[in-house]
């Protein structure tokens, strides 16, 4: 019965049906790792690395090298993008140990830029906005919990004094909030993974084998 179902699923041959078969075989190759590491899993794993590398390289190439460098320089006659183009080329000196230090110029450029960008944006979005949200001007148990919990959680990370007395008590309450947070995140992650697993099972049993509708 299953054999008939499989062949009806494969024939007549179309690119979509071929793709479903390839996807199903690769899915099984990856799940074979649940038994132990084996050549089928290694095949799928290396294919994933290669395909991902090729995918991202092309996306970056098209969007940034072609879109921001080659098109403006060659078609628009703008010469300024040549500066980062040269900096980018300097990165390739890493292949020659004698000249590898030159690549520091490019690394320094984007590390410095990111550091400068991160300071105000982190201060604004991850400190001030969070303090503002934690100090909501409403009187409720939730609002009080949000403020007291945040202070206690932050006190747990205050290591300049020994955690004894009031500081010890507050940091202990902070740990409780952190533990609930970790547990909740763990549960959330598990459910996300299980939902992906259900998706894969649906693909195998519905799209490939046609056993469920």
């Amino acid at each position: 019965m299953n054999e008939v179902s499989l062949w009806t699923g494969f024939w007549p041959f179309t690119p979509e049906r071929f793709a479903i078969w390839v996807g199903a075989i690769l899915t099984l190759c990856i799940y074979s790792f649940l038994y132990r590491d084996n050549p089928f899993y290694k095949f799928a794993e290396h294919l994933l690395v290669g395909v991902s590398a090729g995918y991202w390289a092309l996306i970056y190439w098209n969007a940034n090298i072609v879109g921001q460098l080659l098109v403006p320089v060659l078609r628009g006659g703008v010469l300024l993008p040549l500066v980062p183009g040269v900096l980018g080329l300097l990165m390739f000196t890493r292949f020659f140990p004698r000249f590898a230090w030159i690549s520091r110029y490019a690394i320094a450029f984007y590390v410095g830029g990111y550091a400068g960008l991160a300071i105000p944006s982190y201060m604004q979005a991850r400190v001030l906005a969070q303090v503002h949200a934690a100090m909501a001007p409403t009187v409720s148990i939730t609002a009080a919990l949000l403020l007291i919990g945040l202070i206690c959680s932050l006190l747990y990370f205050f290591f300049s004094r020994e955690h004894k007395g009031v500081l010890g008590g507050a940091s202990r309450i902070g740990i409780w909030f952190l533990m609930v947070g970790f547990g909740a995140s763990f549960g959330y992650t598990v459910m996300a993974r299980v939902s992906l697993l259900i998706g894969r099972m649906q693909f195998l049993f519905r799209d490939w084998l046609g056993l469920i509708r």
Partner: peptide
């Protein structure tokens, strides 16, 4: 302009990774 430049340098580092 400098942020735009960073995008190009980062893309070059991806190409370096492929290399």
């Amino acid at each position: 302009e400098l942020r735009q430049w960073s995008v190009i340098v980062i893309a070059a580092s991806i190409v370096l990774g492929i290399g």
